[in-house]
Computed example of a mutant assay.
Amino acid sequence: MKDIKVCLVSDTVYDLNGVSRFIQDFAKEAKSYKKEFTVITSTKKNHYESIENIYNLKPIFSIKMPFYKSLDLVMPNFFKIKNNIKKLKPDILHISTPGTVGLCALISAKLLKIPVVGIYHTDFPSYLYENTKSEFVRKITLLYLKVFYKNFIALFSRSNEYVDIIQKQLVFKKRDLYLLKAGINIKNFDKSFKDENIWEEYNIDKNSFKVLYTGRVSIEKNVDKLINIWLEENFLDIKLIVVGDIEIKLDSSKLEEKGVYLLGRKQKEALSKLYASSDCFIFPSTTDTLGQVVLEAMSSALPVIVSDKGGPKTFVSEEFGYIINIEEKNQIIKAIKELKNKDEVYKNKSEKAYNYMRDKSISHSFLDFWEINQKILENLFKK
């Protein structure tokens, strides 16, 4: 079979999150391997880096997404999306988000008779339930997703945990579900970026034990529970370093005296240094389908603490850190204090986390993704 053309459409490409970094890295890998892979998005946001196979079609208007303030809810120009897809003539269309941009792509694919495949990046029913605590909202979201994904010929899951969830929730046939191999840019996240002098910039004692969290500071990520632990406990020389957009109300005046530092958005080398220069990583989210930031932390040689619910628990083991019930405060404190000892157990977890990531490059993930897409098309032609 001749090499294929793939077009991926996503509502999020220029945002500061794991999905955006993943798509950007895929676009770069496609260029390096000379694959015909194009990304289409629609946002008023700009990116610090121009990637030639990513097309940003300016939307008609945009507003802040409810419950996800770092994302925009846009009204895309349907005809621009449809015409660009028609011009590209892809053999297969990937839709990585079920938002307004993804919906325009889905309708376009139906009109242009292009087979559609999806990537299930976000567990929206759980995400919205955590933010609203409304069972009605969860059920409506689930109903929308069932309709949205109904005519997809295949769907990729980011972790084994969600293969079963997708099959049950979306009533999707298991034979049409594929695991998207985990991968990150391991060159950008590596222990070689360690630089203890960076802590002077943030007025943080470099000799303290630094627990890092990266991602949105929001309800469904459970970061508020972490912060409350620091406010209630006297950790003294244990600091919580929080990197990302803040989407919940916090009294920042009280935080630093309790050892909580909100550093905001960080990108490129600044982010790489923060990973490599911290002592461990904690990710309390229970709704992430993968948790790319956990992979980035492990690639930076950090032992990790993750929830026993969600995607990260499928690749994290006791060799690399701890899998805990995030609702149990004592489990969180126990894991952090054990790591703080910096003993042989800590060193082994750090080394094994780093070594585990050596073959989890974005290149491995992209090439596996490409091969599966070729198989999907071959099977389609056989029918």
Rank of each mutant, 00 (worst) to 15 (best):
L290C: 06
S272F: 01
V345I: 15
S277I: 08
K352F: 10
K254I: 14
Y275T: 00
K347P: 06
V345H: 14
Q292R: 10
N330I: 09
N341D: 14
K349L: 13
E269M: 01
F235P: 09
I229H: 01
N341K: 15
N348E: 15
K273I: 06
S350G: 00
E344N: 15
V243Y: 00
A353E: 03
L339Q: 11
K334F: 13
E296P: 08
G310Y: 03
T287Y: 06
S299F: 02
K329C: 06
F283P: 09
L226I: 02
A301M: 00
F320S: 00
D237T: 09
Y322K: 06
V316L: 02
F320C: 11
L250H: 04
L250D: 03
F235K: 08
E328R: 13
E319G: 10
D308G: 05
L226M: 10
S253Y: 10
I238H: 06
F281K: 05
I324G: 06
L263Q: 07
L295T: 02
L240I: 08
E327Y: 11
E319I: 04
I246K: 15
L339Y: 08
G321V: 03
L250Q: 00
K266P: 07
I227R: 10
S252G: 05
K309E: 08
I246H: 01
I246P: 03
K340V: 08
K337Q: 15
S361L: 06
D237K: 13
Q331W: 12
S299G: 11
V294C: 10
T287W: 00
I241W: 05
S307A: 07
K340A: 14
T287H: 10
E318T: 13
V242F: 01
V304L: 02
Y261C: 08
G291K: 06
C280R: 01
S253D: 12
R358Y: 10
S350I: 02
L290T: 03
Y275I: 03
E256M: 13
F315H: 03
L274H: 05
G259I: 07
G244W: 05
D308N: 15
K352E: 07
N341P: 12
S350E: 13
S253Q: 12
R265D: 11
L255D: 01
D245P: 09
V293G: 04
C280P: 05
E256T: 14
K349M: 15
K340G: 10
V316G: 07
K340W: 12
K349W: 06
I326C: 06
Y346E: 09
I333L: 12
I305S: 03
L240H: 00
K268F: 09
K349T: 05
L295S: 03
E269F: 04
N355E: 14
S317K: 11
